[in-house]
Computed example of a mutant assay.
Amino acid sequence: MTRMSERATGGFTLDSWDEEPYDEGGGGTLAEARITKSFTGDLVGTSVTRILMCRTPVESSAAYVGFERFTGTLAGRRGSFVLHHTAGSDTETGSRLSWTVVPDSATDELRGLRGGGQIVVGPDGGHTYQLDYRLD
């Protein structure tokens, strides 16, 4: 039986951010970052993330892609799953940070998880998330 789509919301903190540039040519710096996070709200747990990014000479202009493994609970169900990130920002269009659950990456009680959502960075620098999902 297929369940209707539900929405998970909450916040997270960046526990660590280890960034290493690998190309500092003209037009932008290419870097890799390893990040750990702690989640609260409908997602309770931790994650490990690896992203590839480009920071341009314009401070508000950047882009990244990456993968994140979340381990913990979603709506009280325990397991893990992988998120695929795509993000960018610039002075014309602002910030866009979206993520999707990698199909068939969920384990244990979260097996069958599908969905996607976004990350919002507030004016105070705090991070919130939204994940629209379904569990079969």
Rank of each mutant, 00 (worst) to 15 (best):
D18K: 04
A8G: 04
H84K: 13
P123S: 01
T29V: 15
A33E: 08
A106H: 00
G117T: 10
M1A: 14
E92M: 13
D108V: 06
V48L: 09
M1W: 12
R34T: 07
R34S: 04
G116M: 13
G112K: 06
L14T: 15
T56S: 02
Y133E: 11
L52K: 02
T40S: 15
E32T: 02
Y129L: 08
S38A: 14
G115E: 07
R69V: 15
S47R: 00
R114Q: 12
V101D: 11
A31H: 01
W99A: 10
H84Y: 10
D124N: 03
F12R: 00
G25F: 02
L30K: 03
A75Y: 06
G66A: 02
S89K: 01
L113R: 11
R69N: 14
P103R: 05
T29R: 03
G11Y: 11
E32W: 05
T107N: 03
R55V: 06
Q118D: 14
L83Q: 10
G45A: 05
E109W: 01
S105L: 05
D23G: 04
E59C: 01
P123A: 02
L30S: 05
V82M: 08
R114G: 06
R78L: 08
R111W: 00
C54T: 00
V58K: 04
G27F: 08
G27Y: 09
R50N: 05
T93K: 03
I35P: 04
D42I: 02
G28W: 05
G115F: 01
G11A: 14
T86V: 14
T91E: 15
R34V: 04
V44K: 07
Y64T: 00
G66V: 00
E109C: 03
S105Y: 04
S105D: 06
Q130T: 12
T128K: 05
L83A: 10
R55Q: 13
S80A: 15
G41Y: 08
T86Q: 11
P123E: 06
T36Q: 11
S38F: 06
R96A: 04
